[in-house]
């Protein structure tokens, strides 16, 4: 027994492609059509199986390295052009301008420089943690276990929380050194994207979240309660901001 709905609407309903009205109409039909209901269950089982098997394959570390090397060459290969007098004059004028601006905005630029340098180190450390063979200090999603692992090694308490129900599964923790100080790193995963949360003690004043991107990775950084946090990943900024809110509300 075939039904008119099964071929066209069923799949669209399953894929969330129907308008609210049509979806409602289809749901009414579903209550009385065993064939559609069974087929929907089959589709659901197939999707579950595909997701459980974790077939999504994120870029390999070697591809990331190749892309980084290509898009962030150490020495830019721009052909040297013959210096003309007006080039020199323009350069001198630009330097003068920069000197004036620097004088005026010195303190603000220092903050930005610090942020950029910090983000650079953190992104490097994140990238390093993605390499095959890199070790995780404690691989567990047990909050208590990870907390006690850190307790033995650091002088500050690390707020360890598993946000698996919100889509950020705790994978474990490790120690790292950023700008010469020991930092705690919590590893999370979202839709196959590894996310690292760097945390360390600070004496600086609390700040709201600042975000940026570097080498194709996004970061969000903030300070709260004598701690600084920096979340970094290649996932969407919106995801990082959600994680920021989750951590913020738990500290």
């Amino acid at each position: 027994m075939r039904c008119d709905f099964s071929d066209s609407l069923l799949q669209e309903y399953f894929d969330d492609e129907l308008s609210a009205n049509t979806a409602e109409e289809f749901e009414r039909h579903l209550r009385s059509c065993a064939r559609c209901a069974t087929e929907l269950v089959d589709l659901d089982l197939l999707r579950d199986r595909l997701h459980l098997a974790q077939l999504y394959e994120p870029a390999t570390a070697s591809l990331r390295w190749r892309i980084n090397a290509r898009f962030h060459p150490i020495a830019p290969k721009t052909p040297a052009s013959k210096p003309l007098l007006w080039h020199w004059m323009a350069a001198a004028a630009a330097l003068l301008f920069i000197a004036i601006v620097l004088g005026k905005l010195g303190s603000r630029l220092e903050v930005d420089d610090y942020q950029a340098e910090l983000a650079g180190e953190i992104v490097d450390s994140h990238l390093h943690s993605l390499q095959p063979g890199s070790t995780i200090g404690v691989a567990s999603n047990d909050e208590r276990m990870v907390t006690s692992w850190f307790e033995a090694k650091l002088k500050f308490a690390v707020p360890v929380r598993d946000f698996a129900s919100e889509g950020f599964a705790l994978k474990g923790g490790r120690l790292d050194v950023i700008e010469g100080r020991s930092v705690a790193v919590l590893a999370y995963e979202r839709d196959g994207h590894p996310i690292n949360v760097f945390m360390w003690r600070t004496r600086e004043a609390e700040t709201a979240a600042r975000s940026g991107s570097r080498q194709g990775f996004q970061w969000v950084d903030w300070r709260k309660g004598k701690m600084e946090f920096c979340v970094v990943s290649d996932t969407k900024v919106a995801d990082l901001e959600r994680l920021h809110k989750l951590i913020d509300s738990s500290t």
């Binding site: 999504y56 394959e57 870029a59 070697s62 892309i67 196959g192 194709g216 996004q218």
Partner: peptide
Amino acid sequence: LPHVDAAFNLARWLLRGRFDAEDVAQEAL
């Protein structure tokens, strides 16, 4: 660049292999 994963995943499944997918994903970028 944040979509490098998506690029690699599609190439991997279309070409049925990681090795070729790396080259082709890089070429595509």
